[in-house]
Simulated assay, not measured.
Amino acid sequence: MNKMLGVCRRYARTNLEAEDIFQEAFMKIFQKMKDLKNPLLLDSWIKTIVIRTAIDYYQRTTKSEKLQVCLDSIDFERESGEHDRIFYQLDMEILINVISELPNGYRAVINLYFIDGHTHAEIAKLLGIEESTSKSQLRRGRDLLIKKLQKKGIMAYERL
């Protein structure tokens, strides 16, 4: 249960939002339990429902908000570097708290890409955005996350 609440927390801005997502996800899980074909896959099945519920929540709550996406001359194909690997060395609770401060679009893409391991094509499909938008949101979100971590003194890292 705590693990799935943690997944909800990664996608939410506040603990209250996370609890709402968690409750909604488990209502779906209980309603769809009869659809589970392979009980050995229960953990991944539950996690998938929780993530999809979080994405649905994100999409519902941002419908009226405009995602600020400016597709300019950003090098979308830039390879991930040392600054990406450093996220995996941070205390997860600290990282989740800082990620929760990010704007909705950045937060969703960072969670889906770095933590849940989705490709940009998968993220685009899940969020109903263009693949290039996913790449842009990731790059900008990563840059903002690094700045926030540096500002809090959590990560003394200078970009190359």
Rank of each mutant, 00 (worst) to 15 (best):
I110D: 06
H83A: 08
G6H: 06
D75R: 02
M155R: 08
Y157F: 13
L42H: 09
K32F: 04
E79N: 08
E24N: 11
I74W: 04
L71D: 09
Y113H: 14
I123C: 00
I94A: 09
I154S: 00
R140S: 13
I123Y: 03
A121V: 13
I110G: 10
L149V: 01
R10P: 05
D116W: 00
K63G: 09
Q23P: 03
C70I: 15
Y113Q: 10
T53Q: 11
I49G: 03
I74Y: 13
T53L: 06
K125D: 15
K151D: 11
E65V: 09
M4A: 13
I110N: 03
L102Y: 06
Y57P: 00
L126G: 02
I86G: 00
I146N: 05
G81Q: 06
S132I: 12
F30T: 12
I146T: 07
F22L: 10
I46V: 13
K28Q: 07
C70T: 14
G6F: 01
W45H: 11
D43V: 07
I86Y: 00
W45A: 00
H120T: 10
A25G: 00
A124G: 11
L145I: 12
R142I: 05
R142N: 10
E122F: 06
D72R: 08
E101W: 04
S64W: 04
E82H: 06
F87Q: 02
N38H: 13
H120P: 01
I55C: 04
L42F: 12
K32R: 14
I99Y: 02
E158G: 10
L41V: 07
K152V: 02
L160R: 14
I74N: 09
I96F: 12
E19H: 10
A121Q: 15
E65Y: 07
R52F: 01
L145Q: 01
F87N: 07
M92L: 13
D72W: 06
T61F: 06
L126Y: 08
F30W: 10
L16N: 10
G141C: 02
S64A: 10
M4P: 00
N97E: 15
V69Q: 03
I29W: 10
E24F: 06
L160A: 08
I51P: 02
R139M: 15
T119N: 04
L95N: 01
N111S: 09
S100H: 03
I154C: 11
T53Y: 01
T53E: 03
C70G: 05
F87M: 15
A25W: 02
H118Y: 15
R13C: 10
S100G: 03
L67T: 03
N15Q: 11
K37A: 08
I55Y: 01
D20K: 07
S136W: 15
D75K: 10
L160N: 11
A156H: 11
N38G: 04
H118N: 11
L127E: 12
E82F: 04
I86L: 14
L144V: 00
L71F: 04
I46C: 07
A124M: 09
D35P: 02
V69S: 01
L149C: 01
I29G: 06
G6I: 06
F26W: 15
K37V: 07
L126S: 12
I115L: 04
K37R: 14
K32P: 02
P39F: 11
G117Y: 01
A18P: 07
L71H: 07
E79K: 14
D84I: 05
P103R: 12
V109H: 07
Y157I: 15
E65T: 13
E130N: 05
K66P: 03
R10D: 12
L144Q: 04
